[in-house]
Write a protein that binds this DNA or RNA. Structure first.
Length: 859
RNA sequence: GCGAGAGUGGCGGAAUUGGCAGACGCACUGGACUUAGGAUCCAGCCCGCAAUGCGGAUAGGGGUUCAAGUCCCCUCUCUCGCACCA
């Protein structure tokens, strides 16, 4: 008997699929298309378990859909621009391009060794000219339409990255890549994409994506952050300016006793210029801007502010109220200034108490009294308006409307909707990215590079300096260029685009990756898009997915696409977790640094920590390469799918992998040891003449087909699909290993069972199943094979086990013919001897009968 | 603080519509085969007890129901997201 040798088998089948172009996708209008996409990886060096899991999940679906007869597009590529390439290049004295392409080559070979069914002919890398050229073109089109623009703003600056970060890339006040690096505010010129042009659509369509997890949609909605309220105008006294504030609580307007500006608001300096307060105000602004936004606005940071020396009029009370600047007011949100109602807003309350500002109650709870002097916190509940002139006595909910109307009537303001979503800052002061195709000319200003001069090529031969600014800004051969308009000496933009721009349309490019007359071939993109199933990590729930939704709309409005949403269905898989090992002296340890529970360096007892996301920093990682070398790709794929359903975290367990390995060995053995008998027997023709135990086996075959199909199709629950196949396997193995000699009809049913088992296993473990399929005498590959369809008539049973309960407790079971009516079942249960013991002489109150399942006798 | 999700044996997890809780796998225990077993096969494996049976058990408490892991209410714990957003 041949031993199961995964490496031999796997490389043989990988070569076969490759040579025969098995996964090559071509447009075919007669077939239903299915575009399956997993989030493409950043070529960081080698694949990690997260990739393996993500791509194993995707591959099951791709292979399954293909067997189901769909025209499947399943591409793979590389998110190839980005900072790690630059950092690694400086560290290792290589070029980012060399580093990136080397990594791509190695990672491609790793993905190939996993046997994923990609159409490798469509592979793309975003760092190549023929990719970013089209991104630059789209940028120019956006510029023409005002969807890309330049402005001076306060930007998030990471000193370690030496670049600007998008708001989305700031996590807890720190850089998303350097969690120990505080982000500073820096005023800079930057390019923005006008995501806010589509705010409403992006929000509304969240209710139009039934195939997305609610969690992700909620996160997107929160990020967009819709709030309804009003803009209210407060005229400044003795100064020609009217402050506009946004509020959601116009019902509390009569209680607005002061105003607060964000310190960096440009009006603050203007209003205080030449006044006594100027110096103090300037100092306060400077001080506040040194503190990053997170710290400044953290809930543990005390409210701080300063009087500007100016007053304005509360438009409804006509009272003179002071204008402050305050650290807790955000310049980016609303109008950058607020009306402060200390009685009904906790922040305003704290501020007023600190600076001794007046409190006026304007909402009173219906069943109690509040006195301003005795308030210890703001009253934020519902109530009745007081101290509000003609609005006194009405409920504050109604006052929202009424005061809104009043403001509009009097021209003091208007109702509006405000969103938290801001425009997307895409400028990065980095080298390894797509150049922004514009030129700055002293005469002509900002001049877009003409389309026929694209691409603006990222130069490869230049010096990379450690730290500091982007090398492009030192490279005269790059930035020196004649102005496209007037021909005079001009300077090229040296910033590059955020890499999220590339990932906002790579899925479109996959439909025609070699197309050279535009971003993509319209006919092909119309055929394939949208992506039917997108699979990736939850960590992209906001950034990547929101940008992609935005970019899709831009491409639609530019005439490239005819769809609104890029991804019809989204599956967010959980993280791969493993326990951590920690030594008191040496910190986190790799498993090989621990022997017999002791640290190999100091012999100290190693603490086994909780299972958390695999990460290099906590050293609880596992190199998939080693697993593939030890067990082969099929075992690794199988364990990843078997250990938990995809959306949940996967708890890594070394012994569990052994289990998958043993299962595949058992399958191998039972098929190879019995292949002659299986090959030489005929398919079972006459079901009704089979003895009961074979009918039972037949039923199991069809039950398994049904279960596996439903688990993959409806829920992506591969773990239960695999366990169903294991049950079928156990049943086959019991029959074959039983004492008796197998006869002809036994073998005919075994043939049916084994063949179906192999086909059902194919999407999960494609190599071993192909090999065993051949072992059974089939010449063609399972790639060509159709997914089996269960037959209802084989699921039907002649008898079933009925559970008999007395007062809800299981007391007995009986075998009964199926489809008895309720009375028959009841009578049968009542005549059951074991059941009678529990009923004794007691009166029966009620009998509940669930057909073919259960009888519950209530006494 | 707000929002969402989760809590089931020693472990990963099943139970899809309210109908036998613990499928499948791991670990563990015993046995067979064996020079050997970290291979393979067979058996056992939620807890308690007066043990062929009975009782208890799905974070804890209460409720609805003939029947609750599943539905409702309260409490606790954990995870994730947001967090002075006016």
């Amino acid at each position: 008997m041949k031993k199961y040798n995964p490496h031999m088998i796997e490389s043989r089948w990988q070569t076969y699929w490759d040579k025969n172009d098995c996964f090559k996708a071509t447009e075919d209008k007669n077939k239903e298309k299915y575009y399956l996409l997993e989030m493409y990886p950043y070529p960081s060096g080698k694949i990690h378990m997260g990739h393996v899991r993500n791509y194993a999940i995707g591959d099951v679906v791709a292979r399954y859909k293909r067997m189901k007869g769909f025209n499947v597009l399943h591409p793979m590529g590389w998110d190839a621009f980005g900072m790690p390439a630059e950092n690694a290049a400086i560290e290792n004295n290589t070029h980012p391009a060399t580093w990136t392409y080397d990594n791509i080559d190695y990672m491609r070979s790793q993905l190939k060794s996993m046997g994923f069914s990609y159409d490798w002919g469509r592979e793309l890398a975003t760092c190549k000219e023929d990719y970013y050229k089209w991104e630059q073109l789209v940028f120019l089109k956006m510029f023409e339409r005002g969807l890309a623009y330049r402005k001076k703003t306060f930007v998030n600056w990471c000193d370690k990255c030496q670049t600007v970060l998008a708001n989305e890339q700031v996590v807890d006040g720190c850089c998303w890549r350097h969690t120990d690096q505080k982000v500073e505010l820096k005023e800079m010129d930057s390019w923005f994409l006008k995501t806010t042009e589509y705010t409403k659509e992006l929000l509304d369509y969240c209710d139009n994506l039934p195939g997305w997890p609610d969690k992700v949609l909620t996160m997107q909605k929160n990020w967009i952050g819709k709030s309804q309220g009003a803009i209210i105008k407060f005229p400044v006294i003795d100064y020609d300016y009217t402050v506009e504030v946004f509020t959601t609580r116009q019902d509390t307007l009569f209680g607005a006793t002061f105003l607060c500006f964000a310190p960096e608001h440009p009006m603050v300096k203007k209003m205080t210029r030449g006044t006594d307060q100027q110096d103090k105000v300037d100092a306060f602004i400077e001080k506040t801007l040194k503190i990053d936004t997170f710290m400044r606005t953290a809930d543990f940071t005390a409210k701080e502010g300063l009087f500007t020396g100016r007053y304005c009029l509360n438009p409804v009370t006509n009272e003179k109220i002071p204008i402050y600047i305050a650290n807790f007011v955000l310049y980016e949100y609303g109008t950058g200034a607020i009306m402060a109602v200390p009685t009904h807003d906790q922040r305003d309350f704290e501020f007023a108490k600190k600076y001794d500002l007046p409190l006026r109650l304007v909402i009173k709870p219906e069943d109690s009294e509040i006195v301003e002097d005795q308030m210890e916190e703001a009253y934020v509940g519902e109530g009745i308006l007081v101290n509000s002139d003609q609005f006194n006595g009405i409920k504050n909910r109604d006052a929202l409307e009424k005061i809104g109307d009043y403001l509009e009537d009097k021209g003091m303001g208007y109702r509006t909707t405000n969103y938290r979503l801001k425009d997307w800052g895409i400028s990065r002061q980095r080298y390894w990215g797509a150049p922004i195709p514009v030129v700055y000319c002293e005469r002509c200003g900002v001049v877009p590079v003409p389309e026929d001069q694209l691409p603006v090529v990222l130069p490869l031969d230049l010096d990379l300096k450690e730290g500091g600014k982007s090398p492009l800004s030192y490279e005269a051969s790059f930035y020196e260029t004649p102005c496209p308009k007037c021909g005079q000496k001009a300077r090229r933009e040296t910033d590059t685009m955020d890499t999220f721009v590339e990932s906002s349309w790579y899925f479109d490019r996959f439909t025609s990756p070699r197309y050279d007359s535009g971003p993509f071939d319209k006919e092909k993109v119309l055929y394939w898009m949208p992506v039917d199933q997108y699979i990736g990590g939850i960590e992209h729930a906001i950034l990547h997915l929101l940008y992609s939704r935005f970019y899709t709309r831009v491409l639609r409005d530019l005439g490239y696409l005819e769809i609104d949403e890029p991804f019809t269905n989204l599956l967010t898989q959980g993280m791969v977790c493993k326990e951590t090992l920690k030594c008191e002296k040496h910190g986190y340890l790799f498993p090989e640094q621990v022997k017999d529970g002791k640290c190999i360096y100091c012999g100290a007892e190693v603490e086994v920590g909780p299972s958390i996301k695999m990460s290099k920093s906590t050293k609880n990682v596992l190199d998939p390469q080693k697993l593939i070398e030890k067990y082969g790709a099929d075992t690794v794929r199988m364990f990843c799918l078997f250990a938990s359903p995809p959306e949940r975290d996967l708890e890594w367990n070394d012994e569990g992998v052994e289990g998958s390995w043993r299962f595949l060995n058992r399958v191998w053995r039972i098929v190879t040891e019995n292949s002659d008998n299986i090959k030489n027997s005929n398919r079972c023709e006459n079901f009704s003449s089979l003895p009961p135990y074979l009918k039972d086996m037949y039923r199991k075959i069809h039950l398994t087909i049904k279960k596996v199909t439903e688990d993959i199709e409806e829920r992506f629950h591969f773990n239960t699909a695999i366990s169903a196949i294991m049950e079928l396997f156990n049943k086959i193995s019991q029959l074959i290993n039983s004492e008796k000699e197998l006869n002809e009809s036994d073998w005919s049913v075994v043939k049916e069972a084994v063949e179906n088992m192999i086909v059902l296993l194919n999407p999960v473990v494609p190599h071993i199943s192909e090999e065993l399929w051949r072992e059974l005498g089939y010449k063609s590959s399972l790639v060509e094979f159709s997914w089996p369809q269960h037959r209802e008539e084989f699921l039907e049973k002649e008898t079933c086990v009925i559970v008999i309960q007395v007062n809800g407790k299981v007391r007995s079971r009986m075998d009964a013919p199926v489809s008895l009516n309720k009375t028959e079942m009841e009578n049968m249960a009542l005549s059951d001897e074991r059941t009678r013991k529990f009923i004794e002489e007691k009166a029966i109150k009620k009998v509940i009968v669930v057909p073919d399942k259960l009888v519950n006798i209530v006494i």
